[in-house]
Design a protein around this nucleic acid. Structure first.
Lengths: 219, 219
DNA sequence: AGACAGTGTTAGTCTCGTCTATCTTTCGAT
DNA sequence: ATCGAAAGATAGACGAGACTAACACTGTCT
């Protein structure tokens, strides 16, 4: 198993996640996600293609090779296992784990990751509902509907939320918008208006941008 | 709390540990411990003195400033807490933890270290018997006698062993030469000859180089 | 005291990963 | 069909951290 620098791993993960969401990744998107200059991305892409991790032709879009995807999946596994472990075994709050995992994922050995996963019962998802790839790199990542897709009267279960913004996570927790919660859409104002969502015995107004970051399962 | 690069941390720790053992650290010693060229040490020392972490004059010996010592103690704490946690909470063997901790110590936040320490009951020593600095940077590191210092007929308790060589650790474990074990010196051949050591119901022959790496407490 | 082995420093180069500034390509709007 | 704005690539620089080769200092042994 080849080992990569922290930077290389970060680029691979960024490309992986962007192309998961949108089919392929663009230079500017990677630059934005990693907060580096686009020139830095160009330079790194040259190195990555040289190592056979990324395929790319001039002015074209970026995609991971098989090798690159394997590496990225390992990294995603490391990240999500660490997040789950921190919450379950060490009492972290779900808004505290992302940045810690961002650093640890580059330092943790496969053995450590597997022991952590075993210690907390091989969870299928991380604290934000994101699925954890298996040790062999299998990942089932369904396309979910979002809260914003619900029609008035519909009921659903929250299965996943976006995980990068601690403040958002604290807000969601305060509303009890957490994976596993059952929600129902009471009203939906026209013209991209706010939704009225009931969860438990409370109702909340939710704007479309927020609603788009909460994923639900037909239920 | 300033944050340092992995390299800077490694140098600080190396200088700290060398000067603990011998009062001061020399360029070649640091180079040998980190397996880098002496020229690299000279270059790094220039940077470190610039940052006020090390005091040094040309051709003189290296010592940490107060600031440098504080940083090194934090790093040592991180290392030893991680080692203890891996053994106690995740079932690592004591010969597997050193290299894992070497990587994790650079990535773990103070919060993580403190939670790990709390989760395993704030141990005073790591799995090899080395004392763990407190969160406030206090470290009690007594000078112990070694197994080689024992006179025939003397009894003692093993309190600590050197921790860097996994093979050595496996060998020591197979002999039950572990912290906490009570040993007695039955014989000591003259002219730097081997010692005959009893531990439990078994006796073993131990050469002086090995005996010097096992620390004991009068008991 | 002088010679020499060992220790330490300097000089120059390399790679990695970043930047800014500039140039090229692509693509959508007219 | 062209023009201009994004997007992307290139050129050149820089800092960190490493190396080798060459040079300087120290301390010891005779």
């Amino acid at each position: 198993m080849a080992t990569f620098s922290t930077s290389v791993e970060d680029y691979l993960k960024a490309i992986f996640e962007l192309s998961r969401d949108e089919g392929s990744a663009a230079t500017t998107e990677v630059a934005a996600r990693l907060t580096v200059a686009t020139a830095s991305v160009s330079a790194m892409v040259r190195r990555l293609t040289g190592q056979g991790l990324v395929s790319h032709e001039r002015y074209g879009s970026l995609r991971l090779t098989k090798k690159g995807k394997t590496a990225a999946l390992q990294l995603v596994r490391r990240h999500r296992v660490i997040e789950a472990y921190l919450v379950t075994a060490l009492g972290y709050a779900w808004d505290e784990v992302h940045s810690e995992a961002e650093r640890l994922e580059h330092a943790a050995s496969p053995r450590l990751i597997n022991r952590m996963a075993a210690a907390i019962g091989e969870p299928q998802v991380d604290p934000h509902g994101a699925p954890i790839p298996t040790a062999h790199g299998k990942l089932e990542e369904p396309k979910y509907r979002t809260l914003g897709d619900l029609a008035p009267g519909e009921k659903a279960k929250i299965v996943r939320v976006e995980d990068e913004d601690p403040e958002l996570l604290r807000y969601l927790a305060s509303l009890r918008f957490v994976p596993g919660a059952t929600v129902s859409c009471l009203k939906k104002e026209p013209y991209e208006g706010p939704l009225t969502i009931r969860v438990g015995s409370k109702t909340h107004m939710v704007g479309p941008p927020l609603a788009a970051r909460i994923f639900v399962n037909a239920s």
